[in-house]
Structure formats: structure tokens, C-alpha cells
Amino acid sequence: MKFVGITALLVALLAFSAGTVSYVCCRRLPPEAAAPGDDALLWLRSEFRLSPDQMARIEAMHAAYAPVCEEHCLRLHRASAEVRRLRAARADGQAITAAVATVAQVDAECRTSLEAHVRAVAAVMGEPAGRRYLAVVLPRLSGFDHTRAPDLDLKEPTHEGHAQH
């Protein structure tokens, strides 16, 4: 009975070691992926095997897009606030319709600009990484909803939410 116990312990240790080795070998993401951080481009860096030159270009594009995104958000915020104000003030229908149209126009501009940015990033990545990147990003962008609150603190004139860009 003692020998069975010793054997069972050794087999358990062996199995645990095999499981640990398998876990470590099967991990594909870098260890820093698990850590909370503000490196927004870590996904691109870790998944797409981009060259330093490609990564530098994408970082520059990402940084350049930040103020564009910020401006869209501010315009959208103002246009939405105007619609709310007009509705609260029970303004005439034409004014409200015009304000709603402005919101839709800014929303469309934002979507178009964002998609253009994403496609430009994909072009820098080249094939097949670019296609794979678009396959992940585009469906999610098409599903976004500008009527919901953005994940940033909209304060005029500064736009603190974009500090992470």
C-alpha cells in the first residue's frame, strides 16, 4: 500500500509537470499581454509580426489619428447636445430635424474617417496581415453605436479621453 502511494505521488508530479510544460509551450501571447496597461498597439505588435519600420509607421498614423478622432467626438457631442436642448425646449420640428441631420452627418463622417484610417493601417501591414486585421476590426467598427456614451470624459475644450492615444 505504501508503494502504491509513492507511485501515485510520482505519477501525479509527472502529470503536473507535463501539464505545466504544455501550458507554457502552448501560450502564444507575450507575458505583458496579461498585464493591464495603456499600450493600445500591443495587439498589433504581438499578433501581426510587423517589422520595426511597419510598426513605427502605424504608431505615427495612430498618433496622427488621435486629434481627428477627438474632433469627431467633440462635434458629435455638441450636435447631440443641441438635439437634446432643442427637444427639451420643444423647438419646432424643422430645427430638430436639422439638428438630427447634423448628428447623422457627423456620425457618417466619423465612420468614414475611421474606416479610412483602419484601411490605411491595413495597407501598411501588407498581405496577409492586413486582411486578417481588417477581418477582426471592420465588423466591430460597423457595429458601433454613436448614440451611446463614449468611453472618455468629454470636456470642452480639452479631450482627456484621448490622452491615451
Binding site: R27, L29, P150, D151
Partner: peptide, 28 residues
């Protein structure tokens, strides 16, 4: 390891999407 990778990748994708589209945090 595969499950952990998928979970962490999803978080990285979300982090990236939020950086280019702040509305992603709620819509995504």
C-alpha cells in the same frame, strides 16, 4: 493555454478598438 490566449487577445483587441473608437467600450 488556448483559452487564456483567446481571453487576453480579446482584451488586447478591445483596448486597440477603444483607442481608435472610444464608443467601442459600450458597443463592442
Amino acid at each position: 493555454a488556448g483559452a487564456r490566449d483567446r481571453h487576453e487577445r480579446e482584451q488586447l483587441v478591445q483596448r486597440y478598438l477603444i483607442s481608435i473608437d472610444p464608443h467601442q467600450s459600450s458597443a463592442g
